[in-house]
Design a protein around this nucleic acid. Structure first.
Lengths: 218, 218, 218, 218
DNA sequence: ACTTCCGGGACTACCCGTTTGT
DNA sequence: ACAAACGGGTAGTCCCGGAAGT
């Protein structure tokens, strides 16, 4: 397998290996920039903080900021364990497991990981994502994109009707539950138990779903 | 009871009256600007079209463009029948009707109205909303905001547990179905029957929901 | 004497009489607008307050705001007793009084009047004039313009060397003292005695002046 | 002692070193822009010239104009020998020299330098500063700011009463003289001798000061 | 006289491509 | 190689003024 050293399009090669070390350094820098940015956002608000101020605080040039994050929004959206991790989790699930359980398990694990590693950072990010319209939009979009990827992967892996309506639909239903849970948690300043909230939300979803199934024709 | 003559907040009075005519004129102008904008977007792409070009095409100044639409994105998002219409529909539904049916009916009616009135315009807008990331984000956000409003209204009108998880959850599940339907329709250049697609999606949702209800604990 | 009803250039006719009543109404409106503006400036800052917000708070249209004040800056600069009052004071002074005493007396009276009538308003205005660069510039400019007017008037009234250097020079020296006094007073949140501060400043000026006279050639 | 390589605050390092060359290039660009701007202002007036026209004439983008000058006003205010030079001059004076002489010497040298290096440019700038209200305001403000800086520096260097009233007062008296001189010179289209005018003004100041000292209490 | 409509100019923020310097 | 500086361009906001309507 040939080692790639640079990737032009901003995506890291899936099986990135040679530049593992380089990549780790980039991650550290990103973390540092994010830390400064979150601090400034807290102190004076998202819109009121300019990229230049963030760059100054991180002791880099504005131009370099954009080399690490494609946009100001992304400094909030990004986290260490981006998609690939979640996809790996997915693949490790037994293929005959019911769809809902698979998805739920992956979501729980990702969320738990983030929360355990740095709860304060997660809270700050989530509060921004729910408080700033543009970020809220980006967040929801990221979610639906996630569904899409998962749907494609599961559709290939498991035998499913060609038009993958079911996966997409179950996925967004589940994400609705996650959103509600995160919203409550964030409004609560993170004092409540995130995973417990998630459970309550999915339970509510189950109840409604039963209702839904009965109401719909058939 | 004396009628209010002025509204303090600088927005149009809720029950706009004297300026009904003015408001209609503003709507006509907005439609005209949107028409030109959609044409330019089709001809050369969304990002490649500047606000100045739109303003030129609409024979207004850029400054005036922003008086009619708060941002370039909004010229795509806007339509004549904004929220209020949908909320009116909601209130006309019998309060004892099952939740899903109420929501579904309102969604169908809104979509049908838009489609019947000007199918080409709807298609152009939807294609942009699915094709341009920022617009897609705005679209999804508008949807979830809509759920929120509906949830609040229904929560007040019908007796529902104080923490309205169910409405929010059912709402997003339904919106997932709508999204899938719109996506197919838009990819198909609008040649298929939008309402039929919506029915197929909701049916799939029903089936999955049955599954979900069985899988979840309880 | 013919009565003028309107004055095109924004200056009231010196001997305005017929529209005295009209003028008083305008003054009341101006006061009202200024009150709202100062409140908003205090609450959220000068630059952060838009003319539209001031107009809303004063229940007028933005366009009308500009009929009462030529610019946003002027809403801070303006006070009820504009120049004419000061000029009247000047004329009432005995023409053989030493220059410095004349000027000092007029300055003291104007300041005392402003302070006595509405100390809080004066403080708010002065704090803005010292805190916001553009207003500071306007303030200093207004001062020097005042000197110019006074110089011309005194030059005509008293027999003085044709090139009125002395008046201008004494004037600006005195204004320097006033500025220092106002600055201290404003930084002190108005808790100290404005007139006493002014006296201290002019005393210091006297001492320096003696020094200056000795040092200069001659 | 190791030399600092970076400056944290985003401004140019105080003792700019590495970028000495860069800084010189920036100065040349600024001069070029100013030249074009002054020409346009002369041809069609200050208010009637837009930044875009200046940018066009200087063959740069409007955006770049604002990188070199924070505002349209600053293109007139700026000159090559900004404050630092004047402050350097100050420090080179013997500390036991009388205050007035020190200030006068620095003012004379700065003015002479500007005049000698490019009299036409100085005249154009001064005419604008006296003719355009906003620029006049900025000019007067710059003067008083200058006094402030000088007062602080002298207050530290020479032993002076803690509340530096005297320096501020002497400073503004002197500036009054400078203003008068510049005004005459500018009205005269620069045909008279600037330094001679300045001398006449300071003489007048001396005479008045003697008078002042005698008049004030004490 | 006050309002609404609309234009225009100054200015800022984000973001990007290119060059320059180390 | 890598980062900094440079320059450009577009979206968007604010101040302000002219014109027309009520």
């Amino acid at each position: 397998v040939a080692a790639e050293t640079t990737s032009a399009d901003g995506k890291q090669p899936r099986g990135a290996r040679s530049s593992d070390l380089r990549e780790r350094k980039r991650t550290r820098t990103r973390l540092m920039i994010q830390t400064e940015a979150l601090r400034l956002f807290r102190e004076r608000g998202y819109a009121e903080t300019t990229v230049e101020q963030i760059a100054d605080a991180a002791a880099i040039s504005p131009r370099t900021f954009f080399r690490y994050f494609p946009s100001k929004e992304d400094v909030v959206m990004w986290d260490e364990y981006d998609d690939p991790v979640a996809l790996d989790l997915l693949e490790q699930r037994p293929p005959d497991e019911p769809l809902v359980e698979t998805l739920l398990a992956v979501i729980r694990q990702t969320l738990a990981g983030l929360h355990q590693h740095d709860p304060a950072r997660l809270l700050a990010r989530v509060q921004l994502m729910y408080g700033v319209p543009e970020l809220r939009a980006r967040f929801v979009e990221a979610q639906t994109d996630g569904i899409h990827e998962v749907a494609q992967l599961l559709g290939r892996e498991r035998e499913l009707p060609a038009d993958d309506l079911s996966v997409a639909v179950v996925g967004s239903a589940l994400l609705g539950a996650v959103s509600v849970a995160l919203d409550r948690w964030q409004k609560d300043e993170g004092r409540s138990d995130l995973l417990a909230l998630l459970d309550r939300a999915t339970d509510a979803l189950g109840a409604s779903a039963r209702d839904l199934a009965a109401k719909l024709p058939g």
